[in-house]
Design a protein around this nucleic acid. Structure first.
Length: 575
DNA sequence: GTAGGGTTAG
């Protein structure tokens, strides 16, 4: 009896020590103490030690493995600790390995926690086969009604792009809580299915599951991707009603949403009122300024960020460089590009080189742009493509051909590139050049990526493609477009000669504008989201429409925003 | 003795 008491008090003492343990060194001492106290085989203490080593930030997985393999009696608890530890480590594959050992070669059976941890590892590894196998085991063990395991499965299938299976798992869940719904939303948005993500919200409303900050962040982010300002504003109102607007995550998502939906002022309004700002807050604002072509303000924001002692990361510099290049701030852009590695120890990635090439190219410094590409490694086709875009602005056939040759050599030429070079040839009246590019597109069967434009009317996002006839109000849209084209022509719009020669088509943004004019109140801005760049003809069309109808038109294209007002565009015709 | 969740860039 006395011995038992003694052991209990020793055990208690060790557990107390473990609770106060905050370093590996202390842990080693405790372990040594365990050994000298004759508690080497004490199961509860070993489990505690193991759990600490495997999970705690001040633990060590290597040490955990050592303890694990010294343990004589491995119960589910010990397996769970080691699997959990590896699942969240830089080597999740080891979690799967331990799980395999547990299932195949041990006397312990996995429980719901085991599945939860090993599925986390599968999610991070995108290990589809293993996930399916574990899914089967989960069903055989009768755990397929467990809300947490099912949520894990949804996340796991979503991570590997199997949206349908994720949805099936979700649909079969006997009970779905808010976390499960939120997982479904992020499943869709991970795959770029933002419309579907927003639809989940409608289902949630009809099933009265409620909404929390996680839900809102997911939905607001989907609005941002879609450029769905009206729905985004509703979410903002909703966040206010729910008292969630103070949340750092919600605030960050709102800044990004407003910036991406063209309401930079609203983004600034929210940014200025946030008490706490993290790296996402600053980056969302700087990227917002950047894509709106407001380089000076992006720089100012960046300087304030440094004053606030926030360490920038690679995304920060993308925003900054994007702003510099669209505003033509060459010196500043180069300065920040260099600062990135010299002061902040961030290695520039292809995207940063892309910004630098764009910065030089856009400003007409094509030789410097060429030099940048040649000094960057690896030689990424994206960089040559950006240079080709600059050659279009500056009508430079020579450098354009160099860029095209390099794209060819890299085997990366696409239809967009051929069209770009054709436009460059057309700009200098080289009809033979234009013809040869058309021939290349035809003979090599290079597929053009279809352009589309979105416009949000009320809570509905409408999509148009080139010469779209599929919209239910198509006839009305075309009638309206003819009228708008006529009005625009009275305000200086002349259909681009090249556009006339190459096609009799109506680009998607023209259809979207006509629809927008028909369906929105006089004087309200028209917001359009496009997947490609705006062509010269549509650009001048929109300038004329902005005067003819006295409307502000805000177009988000693949890389930046254009604000058309009173016949002018914020990009100064330089994009 | 333990579990599932969020935002920028791509």
């Amino acid at each position: 009896m006395r011995e038992e008491n003694l052991e209990m008090s020793k055990e208690k003492a060790i557990i107390t020590l473990l609770q106060g343990c905050n370093s590996l060194n202390k842990l080693r001492k405790i372990h040594a103490h365990v050994l000298v106290s004759g508690l080497r085989h004490h199961v509860a203490i070993n489990n505690k030690l193991l759990n600490f080593c495997a999970i705690s930030v001040s633990g060590s997985l290597a040490y955990a493995q050592l303890l694990f393999h010294q343990m004589e009696c491995l119960q589910t608890e010990a397996w769970n600790s080691i699997i959990r530890g590896f699942a969240q480590s830089s080597s999740p594959i080891d979690a799967v390995a331990y799980y395999n050992q547990m299932v195949c070669a041990s006397f312990s059976s996995p429980d719901t926690f085991t599945f939860s941890f090993v599925l986390k590892a599968c999610e991070r590894l995108k290990a589809e086969r293993k996930c399916k196998e574990i899914h089967g085991t989960v069903i055989r063990c009768g755990y397929d009604g467990d809300v947490i395991i099912c949520t894990n499965l949804v996340k796991c299938y979503a991570a590997m792009g199997s949206v349908c299976i994720a949805q099936q798992v979700f649909d079969k869940m006997p009970v779905r809580d808010l976390v499960a719904w939120n997982a479904l939303i992020s499943c869709f948005s991970q795959q770029g299915l933002h419309g579907e993500a927003l639809q989940v919200y409608n289902q949630m409303r009809s099933e009265n599951v409620g909404v929390d900050g996680f839900t809102l962040v997911g939905l607001i982010s989907s609005c941002a991707h879609l450029g769905a300002l009206n729905i985004g504003v509703q979410m903002h109102r909703f966040a206010r009603e729910k008292g969630l607007v103070e949340s750092l995550y919600v605030g960050n998502a709102l800044i990004d949403m407003y910036a991406k939906c063209g309401s930079l002022d609203q983004a600034i309004f929210i940014f200025d009122r946030m008490h706490r700002k993290d790296i996402f807050t600053w980056n969302s604002m700087i990227v917002g300024y950047g894509v709106h072509g407001r380089g000076t303000e992006a720089i100012f924001c960046f300087e304030r960020m440094l004053e606030a002692r926030m360490q920038p990361n690679s995304v920060t510099f993308l925003g900054l460089l994007c702003g510099c290049s669209h505003q033509g701030l060459v010196q500043e852009g180069v300065k920040y590009f260099n600062l990135m590695s010299s002061k902040f120890r961030l290695r520039p990635e292809v995207k940063h080189y892309g910004c630098l090439v764009d910065l030089y190219g856009r400003a007409g410094k094509l030789e410097k742009a060429l030099e940048t590409i040649r000094n960057s490694s690896p030689n990424d086709p994206v960089l040559w493509r950006i240079l080709l875009g600059s050659c279009k602005i500056h009508k430079n056939v020579g450098v354009g051909e160099i860029a095209m040759n390099n794209l060819n050599e890299l085997g990366a030429t696409n239809a967009g590139d051929c069209i770009l070079l054709a436009t460059i040839y057309a700009g200098v009246n080289d009809t033979a050049g234009v013809a040869s590019m058309r021939k290349t597109i035809k003979s090599q069967g290079i597929k053009t990526s279809p352009g589309w434009s979105w416009i949000e009317i009320g809570e509905q996002v409408h999509k148009f493609v080139v010469d779209d006839k599929s919209h239910r109000d198509s006839i009305e849209v075309y009638e309206r477009l003819r009228e708008v084209l006529h009005q625009a022509s009275l305000f200086g719009y002349i259909r681009d000669a090249e556009t006339l020669k190459t096609s009799t088509t109506y680009h998607s943004e023209k259809l979207a504008i006509a629809f927008g004019l028909a369906r929105t109140a006089d004087g309200t801005p028209i917001r359009i989201v496009k997947n490609l760049r705006v062509c010269r003809d549509c650009h001048s069309f929109m300038k004329a429409v902005s005067v003819a109808f006295d409307r502000e038109i805000i177009v988000r294209d693949r890389v930046r925003f254009h604000h058309f007002k009173g016949g002018q565009c914020s990009c100064n015709d330089y994009w």
